[in-house]
Design a protein around this nucleic acid. Structure first.
Lengths: 113, 113
DNA sequence: GTGGTACATGAAGACTTCATCATGTGCGAA
DNA sequence: TTCGCACATGATGAAGTCTTCATGTACCAC
């Protein structure tokens, strides 16, 4: 491997760092989808979706295949599902933590006396 | 929650999308570290590290506390460890896949004729 | 062949993120 | 209180990312 591992890891996370790409991966981890199906679900310009799909393809996370007139995408690394799940757990913790923080901040004068 | 979940998720992944921040999280998930310890391990300008730490703090992923003259950081969401592990698994799959791809691409002239 | 639908690619500008440098703040020692 | 160390913050320019629009290619129907 030519690139340090932590840098590869950072690049990988950046690949996931876009709302449309997250949605695509979530939809694809349920089942394969044709582009027009993704398009119907995601609310995004067609060319923009194509570009985001290209990013995921270049990263090796999804694969495309042509079926007649349409192009079908699928997740090529099944573990992505686990990752999205782990992220969901952390996000829940973070959001709950924020709510808690708001409550804790109310009586701020008494945090230390 | 005011922000759609998939957008929060994308922001979260973008927070992880930087080599220095990955390294920090990896080091912190082993044990708490003072800033000067991180600095010794990471090879980065002090002010740059401070900024990356600020990003992680704002995201709620790490917490800081002062201990005498130094500042000690810790992971505030233990599940981050699981996430980094899941990422490692996927990355391994991807890298192995790339190696395979290289082999497959060698006889490229015969893919279609 | 022509036309239409489905998708991909390329280029350009707006926007965001990053690294660097200068300055600011909190703590301990003298 | 003044100095020095440890760290944080703010500003600036460079680099990267995103969206939009225009164009290009593959398939199907006719």
């Amino acid at each position: 491997m030519t690139v340090p591992l932590y840098q590869a890891k950072a690049e990988f996370f950046r690949t996931l760092g876009h709302p449309a790409r997250i949605r695509v991966l979530e939809l694809l981890s349920e089942r394969d989808h044709a582009v027009h199906e993704l398009l119907a679900a995601i609310e995004i310009e067609p060319s923009n979706l194509s570009q985001q799909l290209a990013v995921l393809r270049r990263a090796g996370l999804v694969a495309q295949r042509r079926e007649g007139s349409e192009v079908v995408y699928s997740v090529s690394v099944p573990e992505v599902r686990d990752l999205l799940l782990a992220a969901r757990v952390i996000l829940r913790t973070l959001i709950d933590g924020q709510d808690q923080l708001k409550k804790d901040l109310r009586p701020v004068a008494r945090t230390r006396r």
